[in-house]
Amino acid sequence: MNTNEIKLLVVDDEVAFANTLSQRLKMRNIKAVPVYDGEQALSKLKESIIDVVLLDLKMPGMHGLDVLKKIKSMYPDVQVIILTAHGTDKDEEEARLLGSFDFLKKPADIDNLEQKIRKAYKEKRNIERIKTEAGDNNK
């Protein structure tokens, strides 16, 4: 499995944070694209293939949990990792119920974050493989 081509969306209203983190992840062979609110994230998902989304919760406009709900209903295979400075236990529980892959708190350790992103990507690839096999069996 080639995990060098992970396409990641970094969604955070803190522009400096989203840009710097994206730069660091690019240096680790992850194609990270920063966007700064939920609306931008949804339009990016519409126009390009994204494997994993790194999503903040408290953002202007759409709340991260609403963005998560939309992503999972429109692109169920896309894996979403919540990365927030404001996560409560209630938020974490709700995010998991809505199908988030993981829930991390800022500031996060880059090695741990990279590991989680690669795991999330593998999960997406596994789901896609199972779906393809199920489709083949039904033929």
Binding site: K106, P107, I110
Partner: peptide, 10 residues
């Protein structure tokens, strides 16, 4: 926390 996260990433 957001400011610290930016400092850490920088």
């Amino acid at each position: 926390k957001n400011h610290l996260a930016i400092i850490k990433e920088s």
